[in-house]
Amino acid sequence: MNSIQSRQTKRRILQGLVIIALLIGAFYAAFPVVWMLSSSFKSNRDVFAYPPSLITDSFSMSAYAAVLTNPEKVRFFTNSYFVALLVTLFTLAVGCLAGYSFSRYNFFFKKPLNMLIISVQAVPPITLLIPYFSLIVTLKLFNTYAALVLTYMVLTLPYAIIMMTGYFNTLPKELDEAVMMDGGSRFNALWRVLIPISVPGLVSVGIYTFMQAWNEFLFAVTLTKTMEMRTVPVGIALLMGQHSYEWNEMMAMSVLGCLPVLLLFLFFQRYFIAGMTAGSVKG
């Protein structure tokens, strides 16, 4: 009786500590974002008022209205979604195939290739800009979605491959062998067994890929030229004028940009939980 009681108090204390720690962490993570939200409702001048306050007399939704009622700016959002979704889809598909190859086969160029895939991302994009731009122009991809999608695939694939190789490595080879014993092909083993088990990995790689594609600025501004092709980060930069910034609209645009991403994350969270049960299958 006593020991159960003391265990319960211990649990309570632990619970309290965890909640306190979580709240402190949440403040650290969220305060700047709260500040962004608050700035998006202020007038440009009050953004810099001192002493600062969360809500000022100039509270207004006009920055949001300015963004949402401008078809050009709405187009930035649809462009960003379209590009980021395609990139996520293709990167996951291509990355899974490559990861499977690295995980399940032994072949001659394996190590050098692995090394190569890691190191291609080590060249600062800003120096690649000029040759890369010329290349895209030569391929007749300048100012197309394809230019952005392919570029972001190149940027995100190394991570996807490394991660998917890692996840597949944790899954016992007996799983594939069982499928092949039943007459299935290797590809079947990948598609039917390994990929469903790897959902948590896929989700985290997918989220990463989506974020990268969503937030990339340098190539987005270089490889497109018309307003119809611009993405959200370029749209935000367009509000930073030569002499002055539209602070509230910039903030409003980032807030609007992050909402759907957060919803997406909220929705996919349950796959982490699903991953728990999947992970225990192999035991």
Partner: peptide
């Protein structure tokens, strides 16, 4: 679930915005 969403917040913004947001907050009058 809620905390997870809060904790992921810093990640969903483009580097430009992160930079100017912190500039704003860290300025001498921030």
């Amino acid at each position: 679930a809620l905390f997870r969403v809060v904790y992921i917040l810093p990640w969903v913004f483009t580097a430009t915005i992160i930079a100017i947001l912190w500039r704003l907050m860290l300025s001498p009058n921030g």
